[in-house]
């Protein structure tokens, strides 16, 4: 048994409650315990049974005539809640009505206040959601604009398209280079790129006037279309496998792909 229950039972409040000796506030406390704890309810039932037994043990026959008198009055006096008599206006008690209206008004005010609080929270949430959606929308619009530009670029009449397909050193390598001498711009589309050891990378070179010039490292994590460095007078594009971070000069022995432009 919980300590709280044991302490409560030791107060003797339960016995006093059965005898009707408590103040309303104390009665409310006892009723709360009875409702919450089956152990208290059981003791409460036992005390009631005990009182029932005690009073029966001290029973005395009621003098004759009392029952008849009571039953006669009962015949003339139906219980209050089934009374058929209409209430008299003069005896109508407005206090409960006023109290009820006050309670109703209070409840309504609280409801309104509570409702306003809820609305404010809802508006704040909606504003936050709106800001998020707006940001997302702007981001999508930007992406869409970029894609439009890329599409325009690769569909431009002066843009040439070259396939850089890997040799036996990287058979899965497949990148498309878009080259536009008019716009002086280049772009790569990475279709496939094999995984290299952590200490290696793919690097793109342009052959300009017999010299291999660095155009940059191709990362597998790059977007589908990647802007790349443009060099005028490039004769070919070449991809080599280089140490991580790239090299100043290509390792020709590790050439993976090349295409003349």
């Amino acid at each position: 048994m919980k300590e709280e229950i044991r302490e409560f039972l030791n107060t003797g409040l339960l016995e006093q409650y059965v005898l009707g000796l408590l103040e309303p506030s104390e009665s409310a406390e006892v009723e709360s315990y009875i409702q919450r704890y089956p152990e208290v309810k059981k003791v409460y039932q036992e005390i009631q049974d005990g009182m029932d037994n005690l009073l029966r043990a001290s029973a005395k026959p009621v003098p004759a005539g009392v029952k008849d008198s009571i039953m006669n009055q009962v015949d003339d006096t139906p219980p209050a809640y089934i009374s058929s008599n209409p209430p008299k206006v003069s005896s109508f008690n407005w206090l409960p009505v006023a109290a009820g209206l006050a309670l109703l008004f209070g409840a309504f005010s609280f409801f309104q206040w509570n409702n306003n609080q809820g609305k404010e929270q809802e508006i704040a949430t909606l504003e936050k959601d709106f800001a998020t959606y707006k940001e997302e929308c702007e981001s999508r619009n930007l992406n869409y604009a970029n894609l439009q530009k890329q599409l325009e670029f690769i569909n431009h009449s002066e843009t040439d398209k070259f396939l850089l397909k890997g040799n036996e050193k990287a058979t899965d390598f497949q990148v498309i280079a878009y080259w536009n001498d008019f716009a002086k711009k280049s772009m790569l589309r990475i279709n496939e790129m094999p995984q290299l050891p952590d200490n290696q990378c793919f690097q793109l070179w342009a052959d300009v006037d017999g010299k291999m010039l660095n155009l940059g490292i191709i990362n597998s994590t790059d977007d589908l279309f990647v802007d790349f460095k443009y060099l005028a007078n490039a004769e070919s594009l070449n991809v080599t496998i280089e140490p991580k971070g790239g090299s100043d000069h290509p390792t020709v022995a590790d050439l993976v792909a090349n295409v003349f432009i």
């Binding site: 029966r56 001290s58 005395k60 026959p61 009621v62």
Partner: peptide
């Protein structure tokens, strides 16, 4: 009634 009367008397 007898139990109650016993108490009341």
């Amino acid at each position: 009634s007898a139990a109650l009367y016993g108490m009341v008397i």
